[in-house]
Design a protein around this nucleic acid. Sequence first.
DNA 1: CACGCTACTGTGGTCAGACCACAGGATCGA
DNA 2: TCGATCCTGTGGTCTGACCACAGTAGCGTG
Lengths: 240, 240
Amino acid sequence: MAEQPARAWRLVLEHVERDLLDGRIGPGDRLASERELAADLGVGRSSVREALRVLEVMGLIRTATGSGPQSGAIVIATPNGGMSTLLRLQVAAQGFALDDVVQTRLLLEDAVVAALATREDRDLSAALPVLDAMDAGGLTSAEFLALDAQLHLALAESSGNTVVAAMMAGLRTAIESYVQEGAASIANWDAMADVLRSEHRAIVAAIDAGDPDAARALVRAHITDYYTAAGLTREVRHTH
Amino acid sequence: MAEQPARAWRLVLEHVERDLLDGRIGPGDRLASERELAADLGVGRSSVREALRVLEVMGLIRTATGSGPQSGAIVIATPNGGMSTLLRLQVAAQGFALDDVVQTRLLLEDAVVAALATREDRDLSAALPVLDAMDAGGLTSAEFLALDAQLHLALAESSGNTVVAAMMAGLRTAIESYVQEGAASIANWDAMADVLRSEHRAIVAAIDAGDPDAARALVRAHITDYYTAAGLTREVRHTH
DNA sequence: CACGCTACTGTGGTCAGACCACAGGATCGA
DNA sequence: TCGATCCTGTGGTCTGACCACAGTAGCGTG
């Protein structure tokens, strides 16, 4: 490993990470103030701010002005935002190919519904209201897609794996703008929406029936078909 | 969506992202200098630096001092580092449970070897030398684990999906310190290393034979067994 | 003309200090 | 007692100033 030149902001980052790891601070706790951290670590306040900015974007802390117990930098550990930002930027910078993002989403969705269908104590109560909300007429494609995202995320979170849920949320966000564009290119949106609705119902039914293989196949077809219609996939890649 | 108060550094981040998205800049290109960006966007240089710091940690740019074409902030789009940092910090802040990380890794490894075994044009040339290197005697557990990480990453990259490869690298990094600790708790390390070696060979053989189901089962057992021996997995997933 | 040294320029990295808006607590007054 | 006011500490931002560094242009020398 090449020795990194000791950069001041990295010092701060490592200090906070160490405090986290050693349990000195945890979710809900306040970090020391920027000025205090700067003094403690012997760096400038601007360097502290650069480190805190990183932590904020990654979803580890939230900052608030003013005084009182709710002000300052507070550890929150909400991964979805950071994952979304990371994946979105990497796609923008061509670090990630669009197709790989889609394939990965497929992979995770696949696993999520299969896991849900297998579990005895599955709880779809978070997904059902969204399913109903999508039945409302007069939804624009953007509104429909927002609900669709909400549904898939609800399923992921129901599966109980926060890492997978965060990754799926991130993957979704990363290609959101492309999906929006793709929706515009679909000639008969209302018909497509109807197809999506029934596919959703079928997926949930398969999960509810405890049939993982059916759920897998349905969700795979659901996503693949839609992306193909929206012109987001080049070829079907064999992954199974 | 709640309107965010316009923060200066966010302005910079969005500006760069827009340039990326619109193709005005891409991998290999230089960003405008910090002072120039500050002047163009009407913000202070410190705000520009906060945004660039985020981009750097996320693996979007690399910065270098000095002058010439290699200096300044250059778009690189290497996602592994950012993914690793994000996952590692989230685990540290308890945003991600250790078990979820392990389960997700299992999921991805599973898919990787199955995809590799299915592909006609699979290329394991990156993995084989690592396999041989692991046969060397006298490796410490840390050295062995480093090679192990390299092997799994090589397989992921061979599968061709950069997103999955980055995620696996990140997941691995996130739990690296725990894995190191776990290795110390294994009584007979040499015996364990021998088991791991033969499991690796078996996995690669299954891939080479084009047997995705066998590869899946082998890699799953490989990882599960090791984590169990290292005390990193709970026996049963309690969701309550 | 060729070569080597030097000074210059522009880059990121860092720090110090200043000001602002803000939110909560402390204080003081009616 | 209760209300309005002031005070304090917070993050957010900007400015200006250095530094180390690396490439380049220029100059001087042979």
